[in-house]
Design a protein around this nucleic acid. Sequence first.
DNA 1: TTGAAACCTGGCCGATCGGTCAGGGAAGCT
DNA 2: AGCTTCCCTGACCGATCGGCCAGGTTTCAA
Lengths: 182, 182
Amino acid sequence: MAVTTPARERTRHEIVRQAMGLFQAKGYNATSLQDIATAAGCSKATVLYHFHGKPAVLAAVLEPAAADLAALIRTVDGLPRAVAQEIAIQQFTDLSVKHRGVVQVVQDILPVIDEIPEISGLITDGMQLSGFLAGSDDKLERDLATLGINGLLGECRHPGERTDEELRTLCDTALRRLLKRA
Amino acid sequence: MAVTTPARERTRHEIVRQAMGLFQAKGYNATSLQDIATAAGCSKATVLYHFHGKPAVLAAVLEPAAADLAALIRTVDGLPRAVAQEIAIQQFTDLSVKHRGVVQVVQDILPVIDEIPEISGLITDGMQLSGFLAGSDDKLERDLATLGINGLLGECRHPGERTDEELRTLCDTALRRLLKRA
DNA sequence: TTGAAACCTGGCCGATCGGTCAGGGAAGCT
DNA sequence: AGCTTCCCTGACCGATCGGCCAGGTTTCAA
């Protein structure tokens, strides 16, 4: 038996891979289905055969990162605040490095995020993450946490100009300086 | 004599005003000239009569903020580093509050910024600002400064949910926590 | 070998994009 | 009144968008 369904999974995976690169380089709105199809070496109709619409392609691109974020939320939910904050900092740093190519894609979507129900869960989780990172109910601390996340999303840009280790240091330093430790 | 050229300036100003609101709400790419024209109460052809293309509308929207940023750069350029850093923090906070509706528009443009030569000066100034805020040539400090700017751009969103004074506190706190003081 | 299922595509659709153009109406000078 | 200049518009353009569909090709179990 084959380890993977040969054709289907290979094509799907290639579409997602190329779409990720294009979303990073040009943004979601500025990337057309034709762009994705050409990059993936198939036709636009094939993209729409595997994914029911452009938002579904976006959801597939974001899915691994969204799953890790959801796992992060489940892990820290219910923990004491100080512990939850520390673990959230560590795991969000890990997540930012692991999915560095993905996270910044979210930035381009923010203004029109409500029109893409496929990824509503990601947003909910992101807002919860702000709360855990803040470590308190203080409005300023929460806003600072959100600011840190937003800044990080943008800083994962320029893939070739920063090593994974440099990015990790940046994330960790930024969050620890920005957030008042509970 | 009239205090303003009646028709021309009034229409131009209304187009810029409405375009700013739409760029904030939906992003630059997702806003069409027809959207702007409808909001401004004129025809799409009128928008293109006053502005030579969609990028020119964007440039007009960003112009006041870009001018203030350029003035900021001129002010701190040549000053000792510690002084330049402190003044940059204060003036950039002022700028973020004063132009809170404008700054976040830049975020939506970042992926395609190279294709809009009308605002290249804004980008140059933004990168210079990172250097002054960092206060040193250390790569990490520079990256943290850029991260702070990016985070701030996103945090100026949601106009009704934060007072000017709250935004000022947020900007000032974020920059002072994030940056190592020289 | 054969038939069904899965995979893929060219061609087409209506909508909308940014942008152009000829010309209509209002305003002001002579 | 006549003429020019400015302001504005409807109609239209080619290009491209996301999406759909009929049908061809490959795969594979029976």
